[in-house]
């Protein structure tokens, strides 16, 4: 069973991302949306927690927050809303860490 873990809260305000990361298994993907996209910005303390994981980030939410793709940590996939749907389809279930 593979899970798409969706996180929407800033890692600097809530611990949702850190909890989610503890639950991630090898075949899982973590999708960062809304304020969670700040986690993927290079140089931030939260970015360290994401190494080795399969991370996707919603592009529209990055743009809204002024985070250029050049400012992301390596290995992160930027997806649009259609890509979000594809991820949901590709995994057996989704878990939203609200």
């Amino acid at each position: 069973m593979s899970i798409l873990h969706i996180v929407n809260k800033s890692p600097y305000e809530k611990s949702s991302l850190y909890t989610a990361v503890d639950f991630v298994k090898d075949s899982d993907v973590v999708l960062l949306i809304e304020d969670a996209v700040y986690a993927a910005a290079r140089g931030g303390k939260a970015a360290e927690k994401l190494s080795g994981l399969d991370i996707s980030v919603l592009g529209a939410d990055l743009a809204a927050r002024g985070i250029g793709e050049d400012k992301l940590i390596d290995g992160v996939s930027v997806v649009d809303y259609a890509g979000f749907v594809d991820l949901v389809k590709a995994k057996d279930s989704t878990q939203s860490w609200l």
Binding site: S10, E13, D35, D61, A63, G66
Partner: peptide
């Protein structure tokens, strides 16, 4: 302070989110 510093970042573009910038 805290996440409030993000309010002042440059280059915000909310076009694809449907929110007011």
């Amino acid at each position: 302070l805290d996440d409030g510093v993000y309010q002042l970042t440059k280059g915000q573009n909310t076009e694809d989110t449907g929110m007011k910038n």
